Simulated assay, not measured.
Amino acid sequence: MKHVVFDIGAVLVEWDPALAWVDDLGQSETNAFLERINFDKLNLACDAGATFNEAASLLDDSDDAALLRQYVERYSQTVPNKIQGTWDILNALKAKDVRVFAITNWSVETWPQGCKAHPELAEVFEFTVVSGQVGMIKPSVEIFSYFCVEAGVDAADCIFTDDGLHNCLGAKAAGMNAIHFTGPDALEAGLKQRGLL
């Protein structure tokens, strides 16, 4: 194994969509709103290529639709902090000339906002697949196979890490090794076991 492929949200940066509205609505009303509109499912559809305006247009309640339409412009508030321990690992890998890549489920609309909040995301990887840009989404084998072709790497040479176990299973189905991300310490241990750190 020669290369490490990172997920980004909840691995390299914290992400909490409630932060887009909590200052206005408070935590309990924000939570109720997110549950009421099935935000997780709508967000996944946007990660796959839909727009948040299209998602909002499907909501029956006009107030809820107006709130959802605020999401993209407020997105930077939802990714406030780096997960520094993972960045330390990434930098250590690069210092050892390990090639680092990323495959992320991220909307084509919010990805630029995330990169504005954390410019390193646009610079640190040799190649990044953003699901919303390519119309494929983890954990489908398709997106991992697409990554390998476009990056010019063999799946068997890649170690993928993601906080979603289902995404790790998708990577394994595509022929990659995978480490389920539960924190920087466990990731570091897994990479040491595989001889990359």
Rank of each mutant, 00 (worst) to 15 (best):
L42G: 03
D23K: 09
V79M: 06
P17F: 01
A50G: 00
W21H: 06
T78V: 13
D7L: 03
A20D: 04
S57E: 15
T30P: 11
G49K: 00
R36M: 10
N53E: 15
V4T: 08
V13P: 01
Q27S: 13
A66H: 11
Y71F: 15
R36S: 15
A65G: 13
P17Y: 02
T78M: 07
L44I: 11
D40P: 00
F39C: 07
Q77A: 14
N53K: 05
K41P: 05
L12F: 08
L25N: 07
N31H: 13
P17E: 01
K2E: 14
S62T: 15
A56H: 10
A56D: 11
G9E: 09
I37P: 03
L58G: 12
D7Q: 03
L25E: 09
L44D: 13
F33N: 04
F39D: 01
L59F: 10
E54I: 00
H3Q: 11
T30Y: 04
D64F: 13
G9Y: 12
E54R: 00
F39Q: 04
V11T: 08
Q70A: 08
D23I: 03
L59Y: 06
E14V: 10
D60W: 05
G49M: 01
F6M: 08
N38R: 13
A65F: 11
L19V: 07
K2I: 08
N43W: 05
A56K: 01
S28H: 11
Q27V: 13
D47I: 02
D47V: 02
T51N: 06
A50T: 06
A45D: 12
V5R: 03
E14C: 01
C46E: 04
L12T: 03
D61W: 10
A10H: 10
Q77R: 14
G49W: 02
L42V: 10
S28W: 05
E73N: 14
A55C: 09
I37A: 01
E29A: 14
A50H: 02
L44Y: 10
C46L: 03
Y71M: 12
R74T: 02
L59S: 07
L19W: 05
E14F: 06
E14G: 10
A55K: 05
E54V: 04
E29T: 12
R69H: 11
L58V: 06
A50W: 00
F39S: 02
W21K: 04
F6E: 03
T30M: 08
V79Q: 02
D40S: 10
L25M: 15
R74G: 06
T30Q: 07
A66K: 13
N53A: 13
A65W: 08
C46R: 03
A45K: 08
L19M: 13
E73V: 13
N43P: 04
W15C: 08
N43H: 15
L44C: 03
Y75I: 01
E35I: 11
E73G: 14
D61I: 10
G49Q: 00
D47R: 00
D24V: 09
Q27Y: 12
D64A: 15
Q27A: 14
A50P: 01
F33S: 06
T78L: 02
D60Q: 09
A10W: 06
E35W: 08
A55Q: 12
